[in-house]
């Protein structure tokens, strides 16, 4: 993935800051990765490389960790993160139908981020709200009893937010069409 201008500096500054706050032991590796991801939203290759350098471990070991644990992301998340719960209770009440509805409405598959980085869709094992099944987590807010109709409602709100953004962006800026 190509980094945008300024992103490189942001990543380097962030890693430096986190490494400065933690002792550079192997045991701190996961907390360090968690803190960097919390700040950046994901773990770019550059960050992994710098963390490896700082802790004096092979970079491939960091890559191992990041690709092993569900929590870590290699790509930036969407502005809105949607997670569909796939716990037992949710599955039994149609969690897979909820997930499919989101996939259909967003035009992306689980684990993906929309091209414009507006939203990303993931499944989670269980958020422990089984009595409200089926459950989806929209930007850390748990939504209970999600039906395909409710999915439409949620998507509508997210789309409205996108339109608001578009209006803001299309203001005075000129020549932003080089994509």
């Amino acid at each position: 993935m190509q980094l945008l201008k300024g992103e490189k500096e942001e990543i380097l500054a962030c890693v430096k800051e986190v490494l400065g706050e933690n002792s550079k032991t192997h045991e701190n590796l996961i907390p360090i990765l968690q803190q960097v991801q919390k700040k950046l939203g994901y773990l770019p290759a550059l960050a992994m490389d710098k963390i490896a350098e700082g802790l004096k471990v092979p970079a491939v070991d960091i890559f191992s960790l990041v690709t092993f644990y569900n929590q870590f992301r290699l790509n930036p998340p969407g502005k809105h993160e949607i997670k569909v719960c796939m716990g037992t209770a949710c599955y039994m009440t149609g969690g897979d139908i909820t997930l499919e509805s989101f996939e259909r409405r967003m035009g992306i598959n689980e684990g993906e981020t929309s091209l414009d980085r507006h939203y990303s869709l993931d499944r989670v094992a269980c958020v422990g709200c089984c009595t409200l099944a089926p459950v989806a987590v929209i930007d850390d807010e748990v939504e209970g009893k999600v039906t395909p109709t409710r999915v439409d409602g949620i998507m509508l709100a997210l789309e409205e937010d996108r339109e608001d953004n578009a209006i803001e962006k299309s203001g005075p800026k000129v020549g932003a069409e080089d994509e």
């Binding site: 491939v60 890559f63 690709t67």
Partner: peptide, 10 residues
């Protein structure tokens, strides 16, 4: 003693 390769993913 290089550390170029390792196991990734799950």
């Amino acid at each position: 003693e290089v550390g170029a390769i390792g196991f990734t993913n799950r």
